[in-house]
Design a protein around this nucleic acid. Structure first.
Lengths: 146, 146
DNA sequence: TATATTTCGGATATTTTTGTCTTTTATTCT
DNA sequence: AGAATAAAAGACAAAAATATCCGAAATATA
């Protein structure tokens, strides 16, 4: 569904958001630790997110990544778009280049319905609201080591 | 969503089914041509499908691939399982190893709903019924070259 | 039986994704 | 200014997915 890079990106964004209201910068090491991802690979992903302006960063001591306090809500779709692109959300389920109502692939109609539901999810859900649920202890970003 | 290999497999199965009622064996070349897929790669996929007993094959002149006439319906899920496995249909949307109602990832509930809808589609739809629609001209497996 | 045909099996090649390492650049603090 | 810190950038490495090639095995037909 999503690439690994995209899963890491979503988790990193949610974690960042869950900490960013403190006007705090979070270092790469902490992010990677908290979302259980390989640090250097996560660095690359954070670079992309920064270039796409989904997060901000500052270098140097006490530097790190953060989301602007007054920033408008970031929808999940924006993160997916930045990392994976939108082809999965727009493309044909069986890979046809031109699949449409008039020239449908064999699963076009059933598949479209589900894909649209996924698109809807991604467009509705915001990083911030998911971060709130995380803060409230209603979800987790990695396994417990109990 | 599905790997390329899996998309080729689904299309190959539907095409085969759409021709197999004639008690006819279809060669690799024709399959690859009709579903617009690379021939050698398709050969590998057909081998897997044969080993998984989703299709039959015979070697030699007038040999090829076919689906037994009296065979029970093959559901899409069986093809997906044979090529991609079921991890996407059972795994967590954000890649957590243990994601559940009690320890959910941030998108667990919304994602599960969509994933279950996809699972339902794959369990309901059969290769044969999709092949019927193809025969009726209600769907296509590749682009027209108009 | 000989030959042509077609799948099977294994080895190999290419591309993409995932992951790592090192150097540079910006920033903070002393 | 100098030292320490942390992200940026680019080169590199490993793994997985995609794709190709070739000899072997099976089968039909002459």
């Amino acid at each position: 569904m999503f690439s690994k890079a995209c899963k890491y990106a979503i988790k990193a964004m949610i974690y960042l958001s869950s900490r960013s209201d403190e006007n705090l910068k979070i270092g790469l090491r902490e992010i990677a630790e908290e979302i259980d991802s390989p640090e250097p690979f996560t660095a690359k992903i954070m670079q992309t997110l920064t270039k796409q302006q989904l997060v901000n960063s500052t270098k140097g001591p006490h530097g790190g990544f953060f989301i602007e306090a007054g920033a408008p809500e970031i929808k999940l779709i924006e993160v997916v778009k930045a990392i994976d692109g939108l082809q999965f959300v727009s493309g044909c389920g069986l890979g046809l280049k031109r699949c449409s109502e008039t020239h449908p692939c064999p699963i076009h109609f059933e598949y479209s319905q589900i894909r649209d539901a996924m698109l809807n999810l991604l467009e509705q859900q915001s990083i911030q609201s998911l971060a709130n649920e995380l803060q409230a202890g209603n979800s987790v970003l990695k396994q417990h080591l109990d």
